[in-house]
């Protein structure tokens, strides 16, 4: 049987890759994909905890479904805003979007 730690390490690695991408990539849509990676790594961690923990009784899987729904809502609003920016500026590169002064 695969130990719990293996799942947790994979989850942590995926989360780290997603965070790195979200901080480094300049295209807003790619940043969004990285955030999806982060959320899914959290889901993996959550589901493996739920499966291994005594007394969790599968509640973790229910929580994972909540998280998937929230992530979908986030993406719906997020892509709408990215689209609004694209219509106004013809770019979604976060470096070129700097109207307001620092």
């Amino acid at each position: 049987m695969i130990p719990l730690e293996a799942y947790l390490v994979v989850g942590a690695l995926l989360f780290a890759i997603g965070t790195y991408g979200a901080l480094v990539r300049r295209n807003a849509v790619v940043v969004f994909m990285c955030v999806e990676l982060m959320l899914n790594s959290v889901n993996l961690t959550l589901v493996s905890f739920a499966d291994y923990l005594p007394g969790a009784m599968g509640a973790g899987a229910g929580y994972a479904i909540l998280i998937i729904a929230v992530a979908a809502a986030e993406v719906a609003v997020g892509l709408a805003i990215v689209l609004a920016v694209f219509r106004a500026r013809r770019t979604v590169n976060v470096d070129e979007i700097n109207l307001m002064k620092r």
């Binding site: 989360f15 997603g18 965070t19 979200a22 901080l23 807003a28 940043v31 969004f32 955030v35 982060m38 959320l39 790594s41 959290v42 961690t45 998280i67 986030e74 609003v77 997020g78 805003i81 990215v82 609004a84 920016v85 106004a88 500026r89 976060v94 979007i97 109207l99 307001m100």
Partner: peptide, 20 residues
């Protein structure tokens, strides 16, 4: 829309971190 996008991109990362 620019302010919204900056808020959004940082906000979703922060939410994921909070969730983790």
């Amino acid at each position: 829309s620019e302010g919204g996008m900056k808020y959004l991109l940082t906000g979703v990362v922060a939410s994921s971190v909070l969730l983790y």
